[in-house]
Design a binder for these strands. Structure first.
Lengths: 333, 333
DNA sequence: CTGTTAGCGCATTCAC
DNA sequence: GTGAATGCGCTAACAG
C-alpha cells in the first residue's frame, strides 16, 4: 500500500461511540433510522476524532461521486469564463464538484478527456463540442450529458440562438441605409458560425440587401485586422463579424487606415464579450452564456435526480445591443 | 445499491483471458512483470470486452486519485483564464484531472471548496488565495499545496512580481521626457496594488519625477473613464494604471475629449490582459500568469513525485511591453 | 512469472 | 433500532 492520509475511519468512530460500523454509516446517510441518542453519540465521537466520510469509498460502494465534468474548447476564450463561472456556481448549490476540461478545439483531446473523467463523474456538460454527432450520441448513452451550443437530436441541449440578434443587426443596418454588407465568418466546424451566416443571408434577402460572405477560419483580433482589406474591397458599407474579437481587430485596422467608424464604415460584433470596452464602443449581439451555463447545469441536475432523460431543446434568444460602431450609410467610396 | 454503470470488471477480463485478477491488474499497472504472451492475451480480452480500469476502486486501494484542485477567486476575471488553461494543460501532460473551484473572493467559500475536494485530490493550487496564513498552513499540512501570488513562508509559492515591470515603465516615461505622472490605483486590499504603487513611487523618486497617486477602488473600464478628469487635472503628461481595464477606460475617455494618445498624453496599463487589442495598442506591464500556472503545476507534480516539500519561492519578474500609447512628452497643456 | 489472500472504507441487505 | 455479513473493483504483499 502506498502512502495514505491517516484520516479516521468509520470503524474508529464506531469504537469510540460504542456502536458498530453500520450505525455510524447510517448516522451519516439516513439518521432517521437511528434513535436520536445514538446519532448524537456518533456525531460527538466523529467530531471529536475529526472524522470525515471517505468520498472514494462511498463512491465505490454507491456508484455516486458527486462530480460532474464541464468541457470547453478553450478556457481562455473570453466567451467561456462567465459560462464556466455560472455553471460552477450552480453545481455548488447542489454540492457537486466540477472537473474542468480544455479540449483545445481538438476532438481527440475532447474524447480523451471524456474518457479520463468518465469513471468519476455523474454526468457531462459539453460546451461547443467539437465531437461528431455519433461520438456525442455514444457518450450520451453511457452517462447523462447535456450540450451547450450544439444541436443533436435526442440529447438535452441549451442553444444560444444568435440568429435573432443577427437578424436585428441586419435590419438595423438596413434602416440606416446600408445596401451592401459583408459577413466575416468564423471556424468552419462551428455551429454558431453556420447559424450566424445563415441568419445574415436570410435577413439580407428579405430586406433586399446584398451580402458577401468572407471566410476567416481563426476568429481573433489579428485575423480581424488582416481580413479588413478584403472586406473593404467588396465595396460594402458595413460588416457583421462572427465575434467581437474579429470585430475589434477590424476596428483597429480601419482606424489605422483612417476610415472613421461609424461615419465611413459600420461594424457589428457578436457575443458581447467586450462590453463597452472598445473605442468606439461596439454594436454587437448579446451573449447569454451565463444563462446557458446555468440552464445546462440545472438540466443536468434534473436528469441526475429523476434519472429520466427527456429530449430537451432549450433555446435562448439574443438581441442586438446598439452602441457606437453603427450609423447611417455613406455614399460608396 | 444504486444504479451503476455496467462496465466489465477485472474479473470478467480475467475469466476471458484464462488468468486471475492479479494478472489483469498487473497487465494494466506493471506489465513488465508479466510475460509478453500473457499481457497480449489480457489486452486482447480487455479490448474485446471494452474493459476500462475503475478509477474509483483503484483510488480506494492505492490512495492515489490522479486529480488535483485549482482554486481561483473569480474564473471570469480575465487575469485567470490563461493561467487556468496553462495549469490544465500541464496537468494533462501528467494525466491528471483538474477540479476547478471558484471562491468568489470569499474565504469561507474557498475553505468549503477545499474540504469538498480534499478527499479526492492529490494536491492543491491556490491562486490569489483569500484565506488567512494560518488556514493555508493548516491545509498545506494535510496535502501538498502550492500558492500563486500569495507569499507564505514555508509553503511552495509562485509570485508574479509586477514591481520590475512597473519600474521599467517609469524609466521609459522618464526617457521620453515626462516629468510629472500619476498612478491610478486599484483595490485597497490588493497585494498587487500595494506592490505597484510602491514601485511607481520608488522609481519616480530615483529618477526625480513627480508622481501623484489617485485612488480608484474598483478597477474597471467605466471607473477608468470616470477617473480621467482627475488625472488630467493634476497636469501630468502620463499615467500608469493599476490594470489594463482601467487604462482602456482612460483611453476611451481621452479619445472622447479629443486628447490624442500618445501625442498629447501617455498611458500605461498593467497585466497585459488585452494584448494588442486596444486602439492605439496599449503599452503595458507583462503578465506572466501563463508561466505562473505552468510553474505552479510543475512544482506540485514534482512534490507529488518526490514526496518532499521544499520551501520554494519562485518569482517571475515582469517587464514593460512597449506598444503605442506612450510617446515623447509634450509641453504641458 | 503467476496465483492466493487480504484488505482499502463504506453502504446495504438480512437477521435479531 | 441495531449488529453481522457481504460486496463495490482493484492493488499489493506473500507464496510458490
Amino acid at each position: 500500500m502506498t502512502p495514505r492520509q491517516n484520516r479516521p475511519t468509520i470503524n474508529q468512530v464506531a469504537a469510540a461511540a460504542g456502536v458498530t460500523k453500520s450505525s455510524v454509516s447510517r448516522a451519516f446517510t439516513r439518521p432517521e433510522m437511528l434513535s436520536q441518542e445514538t446519532v448524537r453519540k456518533i456525531f460527538a465521537a466523529a467530531e471529536q476524532l475529526g472524522y470525515v466520510p471517505n468520498h472514494t469509498a462511498r463512491a465505490l460502494s454507491t456508484g455516486r461521486h458527486g462530480n460532474i465534468a464541464l468541457i470547453v474548447p478553450d478556457v481562455a476564450n473570453p466567451f467561456f469564463p462567465p459560462l464556466i463561472r455560472a455553471a460552477q456556481s450552480e453545481a455548488d448549490r447542489s454540492d457537486y464538484c466540477v472537473f474542468l476540461g480544455n479540449s483545445d478545439e481538438n476532438p481527440q483531446q475532447e474524447d480523451k478527456l471524456i474518457g479520463r473523467f468518465a469513471g468519476q463523474v455523474e454526468g457531462f456538460v459539453l460546451v461547443s463540442s467539437r465531437l461528431s454527432d455519433a461520438q456525442i450520441i455514444e457518450h450520451a448513452a453511457r452517462r447523462p450529458l447535456v450540450l451547450i451550443n450544439r444541436d443533436v437530436e435526442g440529447i438535452p441541449r441549451v442553444l444560444i440562438d444568435s440568429a435573432t440578434g443577427v437578424a436585428e443587426a441586419v435590419a438595423h443596418l438596413a434602416e440606416l441605409g446600408h445596401r451592401k454588407l459583408v459577413y466575416v465568418g468564423g471556424p468552419h466546424g462551428s455551429w454558431s458560425n453556420k447559424q450566424r451566416r445563415g441568419a445574415v443571408r436570410r435577413s439580407a434577402r428579405e430586406l433586399g440587401l446584398e451580402v458577401t460572405v468572407i471566410s476567416n477560419e481563426f476568429a481573433a483580433f489579428e485575423s480581424g485586422r488582416k481580413i479588413t482589406a478584403s472586406v473593404l474591397a467588396t465595396g460594402a458599407t458595413a460588416a457583421i463579424a462572427f465575434d467581437d474579437l474579429t470585430a475589434q481587430g477590424m476596428l483597429a485596422e480601419l482606424a489605422d487606415q483612417g476610415i472613421a467608424v461609424p461615419a465611413n464604415f459600420a461594424v457589428v460584433g457578436c457575443d458581447d464579450v467586450l462590453g463597452a470596452a472598445t473605442y468606439p464602443s461596439l454594436t454587437t449581439v448579446s451573449n447569454r452564456s451565463v444563462e446557458a451555463g446555468k440552464a445546462a447545469l440545472n438540466l443536468l441536475m434534473d436528469i441526475l435526480q429523476n434519472q429520466a432523460i427527456r429530449d430537451v431543446r432549450y433555446v435562448l434568444n439574443t438581441s442586438l445591443v446598439i452602441r457606437k460602431t453603427t450609423g447611417p450609410a455613406v455614399i460608396p467610396r
